[in-house]
Design a protein around this nucleic acid. Structure first.
Lengths: 119, 119
DNA sequence: TCTACGTTTCAAGATGCATTGAGATATTGG
DNA sequence: CCAATATCTCAATGCATCTTGAAACGTAGA
């Protein structure tokens, strides 16, 4: 992940509807969601979601596959991982306490602690 | 971190010069950097970096303090942690292998030498 | 083949953002 | 107090982007 890729990724997510698309696809998992389903979930027209989906695809954040009449979109998780790594690279500089909160934040997603801390 | 905050954060970093500013401040640590130093490091005019620094400040990604004639800017690490959490929340859905790469990516920042300082 | 469905493409209008340069503000040292 | 330094503010220009609606495309079933 170089600067140009990271810039495209951030620009792609710096938009209300596209950010919602990404989050829907992140929670949807590898199965993904159809374009029409995303359109109603996000609350935009079909032509408009097609525009945004193309933007996200060009940014490498989502992938698509055809299934019958529908086109299924899904999140590209390695792109998100790379983005996190790019943003936080060299964040410590000998001070682990600086980026520990970031690790803890990500942990709450993957390692439920028993309480309902799953935001 | 709600959607509006995340959106402002992504919009703030969806710009070449601002993304460089954030990365410079992330690696600079809590000590931060003066506005003029950032201007030369990023390669923009003083009035222009003032504009971008204000944008990042409004997005809550950086903080400022005065030291003599200079104004020192520094990264707000909790904002970055919150952004990561917001983006990856509910990413697993019972599939830890989905977001494990994100954890690994962030680990490379904190444990570059294999020194197990934490986690 | 014909029709219905899901999605994409295209052009046009409206909106918002980045950059620039001059001037204003705040701080320090003489 | 005065001058130099560091930074900020402001208005204007130019550029990029979001949205919309109509039309076209590919697919599936009758």
């Amino acid at each position: 992940m170089d600067e140009r890729q990271a810039l495209n990724a951030f620009a792609a997510m710096a938009q209300e509807h596209r950010l919602r698309i990404v989050r829907h696809l992140v929670t949807a998992g590898p199965d993904g969601l159809a374009a029409g389903v995303l359109a109603t979930a996000v609350g935009v027209s079909t032509s408009n979601i097609s525009f945004h989906l193309k933007e996200l695809d060009h940014a490498g954040l989502i992938a698509s596959r055809r299934e019958g009449r529908s086109i299924i979109y899904s999140a590209v998780y390695p792109a998100l991982s790379g983005l996190i790594q790019f943003l936080m690279s060299d964040c410590c500089q000998g001070r682990p306490e600086v980026c520990d909160p970031a690790m803890a934040a990500l942990s709450t997603c993957c390692i439920p602690t028993g309480d309902t801390a799953h935001v």
